[in-house]
Design a protein around this nucleic acid. Structure first.
Lengths: 335, 335
DNA sequence: CTGTTAGCGCATTCAT
DNA sequence: ATGAATGCGCTAACAG
């Protein structure tokens, strides 16, 4: 940046004081109408761009929100990101993005970086592999909201989908369709959403008087690759006895689909499949995927709204809020 | 943020000067080993977090890169974003993200916001609906690189896929498979990548001695919805005479797939389909999509690398670079 | 090796 | 309605 036009330059040009320029540009009431017009004119004339860094140093407000996700390529998170970005923009905030790749070191590093950059608040999808990181942030009194995942033991602002309910919906649907041997597949057991979806799965089983068999719960990486690998591992031995799989996510389900196709297993005739998230591509899959919609975009919007609402309050008046959004079963043809 | 521990606090605590603290924390060579250890200790003790805003005001380096994409939910852009973020992080930069939704006003607003925030440089996927916005940025001497799209008339740093080549590859493959009536579908004619892919399409036709029929080129929104709408519009009348469609993007192709399925048209028996981008879900589609891989992640990485390399150079030594990455045809079963 | 002095660009007192 | 003085937290130039 060569173009360092400052308030001082405008002041010199107009013969006014720096102070007056500053106030005029921010449209303060105690500046004359004509002065404002003059100043605005000269400012654009000189190509002035206000230095947010400098003003932030004074006002102690960066008007930046930190957003930390575990994988921006995952449609669930990119959907949430879009929601966050939209309301941030609407409310005059910029978004600093960081992708942790589910790595706790990267998560910690991202948080520190954002603290240094003095973001006003953060929206975080925690890896949940090192809760202390989040605890520290909380103890510090720093404003943040957890998005999509929350901790059992840590009270914090959070916006999540009702995962237990969603897990119930999916499983209950499979049972109603006559399935008795249903596998729950995917997600790591420290991820809250995975555990909750599994809890919903278990709940549905028990409500219908079906036994909960621990061996029918298989954890794995919450990704396409994770689903593929686990499905291959389980089914290629040929001894798995099941008629349906409820997957932690659509991504996992896609991995399973790919594996089943390779193994020549028919969906849903031989094995029925239900995913979770309702990503945009779910209807275009082979076959179209039955899944649970979590309204990713809304989740992102809500997270940003909650955070910004908190920021507007004086710290003493901020009360923790946990927002839970309702999921919705979307029946297509994979189950 | 209550926790406003500053250098001054550490200085008071250690009895050293603010300056020494500053230098010690930045590990400058002219500070004693023991002093450094002491300072580091007191700093963590007090819970010091350096105020990047303040230091940036002095050094005139924000260590922030602006990233402007047209749709973060599009796997192409989220893939690029991941690449950008990875090298930015590696090189010590943070990423400020903005999503324009292909809207030129939003694009302009995003650029101005980032200018105010004093990002060191920007990586932009331009909407190409208002080239002046980019021209102004260039005239200002501000460092930026265009990612995925470039302007005919504007010399600028850019990292793009060889779209002409990719369009050629896709079309030539279809021709080799015996198709003679091939439709090019999707993308807006101001988007450089769309025009170039079409040029490649045309080139393949002509090289094979096939006529280029203007009516066989149909523009539309570069999205799933755009593909769906156009396909419905074209085929539901039943008078379209074609055996294959080369789509601007995989997203468009998915839209077309959905439309064809509704219309009961078989893929690839009745109409063959080729996409572009090779998004992660392409192999899981119904049927698995034949497409052109553009290495999104690499494109993002390369863009960030190029930008950062420029930033390291003194402004006078910066030379414009246009990087073109090679695409690759990925044959699956939709064509 | 360490301290003193100065100032980045802006916004906030307090005067006038 | 406008100006002068002050300082946000940090780094850089220069002493010593």
């Amino acid at each position: 940046m060569l173009n360092e036009v400052t308030l001082k330059d405008i002041a010199r040009e107009t013969g006014l004081s720096v102070n007056t320029i500053s106030r005029a540009l921010r449209d303060k009431p105690d500046i004359g109408k004509t002065t404002k017009i003059l100043v605005a004119h000269v400012a654009t004339d000189l190509g002035y761009t206000r230095n947010a860094l400098a003003s932030q140093l004074r006002t102690k407000e960066s008007r930046i929100l930190g957003l930390i996700v575990t994988d921006i390529v995952n449609p669930v998170f990119s959907g949430m990101t879009k929601g966050v970005e939209a309301v941030a923009k609407r409310e005059g905030y910029a978004v600093l993005l960081s992708d942790t790749g589910e790595d706790p070191d990267s998560e910690e590093q991202a948080i520190n970086m954002m603290l240094e950059k003095r973001v006003d608040g953060m929206i975080i999808t925690p890896t949940q592999k090192r809760p202390e990181t989040i605890v520290r942030l909380k103890e510090r009194g720093f404003p943040f909201v957890l998005m999509g995942r929350s901790f059992e033991g840590i009270q914090a602002n959070s916006v999540v989908n009702d995962d237990v309910r969603g897990g119930f919906l999916a499983t209950d649907y499979l049972i109603a369709k006559g399935h008795r041997r249903i596998l729950f597949l995917g997600g790591e057991p420290q991820i809250s959403s995975a555990v909750k979806r599994m809890a919903g799965y278990r709940q549905a089983l028990e409500r219908r008087g079906l036994p909960f068999v621990p061996e029918m719960v298989v954890w794995g990486a919450p990704s396409l690759e994770g689903g593929y690998d686990k499905a291959k591992e389980l089914l290629s031995t040929g001894k798995a006895d099941l008629s349906a799989i409820f997957c932690f996510s659509d991504l996992v389900a896609i991995g399973v689909m790919l594996a089943l196709r390779e193994l020549g297993v028919g969906i849903p005739e031989e094995i029925a499949l239900v995913g979770y998230d309702d990503i945009k591509f779910a209807p275009a899959l082979h076959p179209p995927l039955t899944t649970v919609d979590i309204c990713k975009y809304r989740l992102g919007e809500k997270s940003a709204e909650l955070l910004i609402a908190q920021l507007k309050l004086p710290p003493s008046k901020r009360m923790l809020q946990e927002v839970i959004l309702e999921p919705r079963l979307v029946v297509r043809s994979s189950a």
